[in-house]
Simulated assay, not measured.
Amino acid sequence: MRAHDKEIDQAGGRPTRARPARHADTGAYGGLRALQRAAGNAAVARAISEDQQDAHGEQASAVRRDTPVHDALRPPRSPAHGGTHAPHVQRAEGDDLRGAKSPEQIVAALKKSGHSDDDAWDLMRHMTSQQFAAGEGQSEFNILDHIKDASSLRIPPVKKRMAEGLMSKRWTIRHYTGSDPSSPPGFSDIASTYDNAAAGKAGDHTNVADWRSLGNIKFTFYLVAVDGQVPARNWLNDTHWYAEWDLDSIPQCWVSPDLLEKMNKPMDADGARTTMQGVKAFRGSGSELKALLAASAFGSGNDPVTAVDNAIGGAFELKVPGGLPVTEWKKK
């Protein structure tokens, strides 16, 4: 994914009555009566059993109206493995997503499954869990487990002091777009690829492999700029305009290197977990990520933006859930 425009969830048994006590029957007649009682009791037992099975069957097939769709579709726990056995409806949903050939087909599959209203984080978790389905005895893959919360990470005081100079610079995020140098873009909001596709505006840059393998389709993408400098990216040569926001003003975001090359391959849940091990991905507010990036970048090079790339482990992007309003398009 690039930091430029992608335009375009008992039935009870019957009550029983106490029967009056009877004296035991004796002789041949008594034996016949005993056989009749045994046959009758067996018939009654079968009838009760069938009634209970019917009641349980009706109850198991009914979904409470106040149960979220994603809860109703969640596969049952397997006592043998502590994992899950996916029912038919979930397998079908995963097949719809994995087999989608266009953004429109993915949007349709998500609407059908009830996940189209998930927020950016939940949708990313859901889509990657479907893409990298759990094999026999495996637990479900959760990509959010591999994105560390910046607020829980301790920055050593010595690193904080060393990063003070870098922290004092102006940190912003930029979204680049616009192929016409003489005319600024005609839109005033940075929209996610999901929103664009749902509106029928998925553009040439939309990559279905990104959607299926990363699930980050309700995020928008940006480059981090330090004192007006952004890291080198080849695709910047094709853009002429950018919008800019102070990083401190962003309430929620996350950073990682480009994950497509790692994740765009056939894997099960365990394979995806192994692939994500060691990936440097962090989430938090813009201020929290700035402090973390500055401390990580110190000692990784003299050029701040290149140093941040090096600290993260490669060309990285900052992702914001949803979109951001544009107040001004600036010429590159």
Rank of each mutant, 00 (worst) to 15 (best):
M127N: 06
K148S: 11
G40T: 13
H56S: 12
P156W: 06
K111Y: 00
D25C: 03
L35V: 08
L73I: 04
Y29E: 10
V63C: 08
V44H: 12
G114C: 05
E104N: 14
V63G: 06
I48M: 10
A45H: 08
R33I: 01
L110I: 05
M127R: 10
D117E: 14
P79L: 15
D95W: 00
A108M: 02
G82S: 06
A43Y: 04
D25Q: 07
L32P: 01
R46Y: 01
H146I: 02
E104R: 14
A150P: 01
K111L: 03
D145W: 05
A34P: 02
A28I: 07
M124Q: 15
V107E: 09
K111F: 00
Q138F: 01
A134L: 01
A109F: 00
P15I: 06
V63K: 14
K148Y: 03
W121N: 05
A72N: 12
R125T: 10
L153N: 00
D95C: 05
Q131F: 03
G57P: 03
R46V: 01
A28N: 05
D54T: 09
P76L: 13
W121R: 10
R14A: 10
Q90E: 09
N41P: 02
V63M: 07
T26N: 05
R37A: 13
K159T: 03
D54V: 09
V107L: 10
T67A: 15
E104Q: 15
D54S: 12
A62V: 09
R33Y: 00
V107Y: 00
A42H: 09
Q90G: 03
G13P: 02
D25H: 06
T16R: 10
H88M: 11
D96S: 14
M124C: 11
A39E: 04
R46I: 02
L144P: 00
G94H: 11
T84P: 00
P103I: 03
A72E: 10
A45G: 12
E93K: 07
D25W: 00
N142D: 14
E93V: 05
G83L: 00
A55N: 09
R37C: 02
A108P: 01
D71H: 10
P15M: 07
E140L: 07
H81I: 02
S49V: 06
P76S: 14
G30Q: 07
Q105I: 03
Q52M: 12
Q131C: 08
G114N: 10
A24K: 11
H115D: 08
D54Y: 04
E50P: 00
L97N: 00
R17K: 12
S151N: 12
H115F: 04
V69M: 11
R125I: 08
R125V: 12
S116D: 14
G83D: 04
A62K: 15
A150N: 06
K112D: 08
S129F: 02
Q105R: 13
A86V: 05
A133M: 05
G13R: 09
R77S: 08
T84F: 07
S152A: 15
H126F: 06
A60L: 12
A28V: 06
E104D: 13
S78K: 11
G40E: 11
V69K: 14
A39D: 03
A45K: 14
T67D: 13
S152N: 12
R46M: 09
G13S: 12
S61L: 15
